[in-house]
């Protein structure tokens, strides 16, 4: 009797040990779902403060085999953000954003790294900042234009005096 009881206890301990060692949930079925839910479009004005283009009209064109067709239209939210679900089998989209006479566009290609990569983000931020080089270039052009205008008007004056 005693040997049987100790055997049962031993068996129980063994089962318990095995249960502890074995990975849990080994008998469950695993379900993995893949889904791309949305593409994000952000629109804002340049000039340092990056003010969002709130309530801007957004048009999304789906590009497939070089053919472009209007996929959907909508309005950006107060932060200039617009989200849309991609179409099955289409990886390239052109987003056109327009608000009170301002218009900008950007092509998003999911196959080529989905729109804004880090480098592109930095470039966009740089574009949004104050264009110091642009200002200096502009002043240079103005000085040149002033010189040309001076020459032309001076020549006109000279001719007038010669005629007299």
């Amino acid at each position: 009797m005693n040997t049987i009881r100790s055997l049962v206890v031993l068996a129980l301990i063994l089962i318990l040990c095995m249960a502890l060692i074995c990975p849990p949930a080994s008998a469950h079925r695993v379900i993995v779902q893949g889904r791309v839910s949305e593409i994000q479009v952000k629109a804002y004005f340049g000039g340092g403060d990056a003010a969002p283009m709130a309530d801007a009209n957004v048009e999304i064109y789906a590009i497939k085999d070089g053919q472009e067709e209007l996929y959907l239209t909508g309005k950006a939210d107060a932060d200039g953000m617009f989200y849309f679900a991609p179409k099955i089998g289409v990886s390239e989209y052109r987003a056109v954003v327009e608000a009170t006479g301002h218009k900008g566009e950007e092509t998003v290609n999911l196959a080529e790294g989905a729109g804004i990569m880090e480098a592109e983000q930095a470039e966009a931020e740089k574009e949004a900042n104050l264009p110091i080089t642009g200002i200096i270039t502009g002043f240079g052009y103005l000085a040149g234009l002033a010189g040309i205008a001076m020459i032309i008007t001076a020549r006109k004056m000279k001719k007038k005096y010669e005629n007299k």
Binding site: F45, G47, D49, A51, M53, A54, D55, A99, T100, I135
Partner: peptide, 9 residues
Amino acid sequence: LIHISIGPT
């Protein structure tokens, strides 16, 4: 280039 952010624009 001198911007002021007002409301939605």
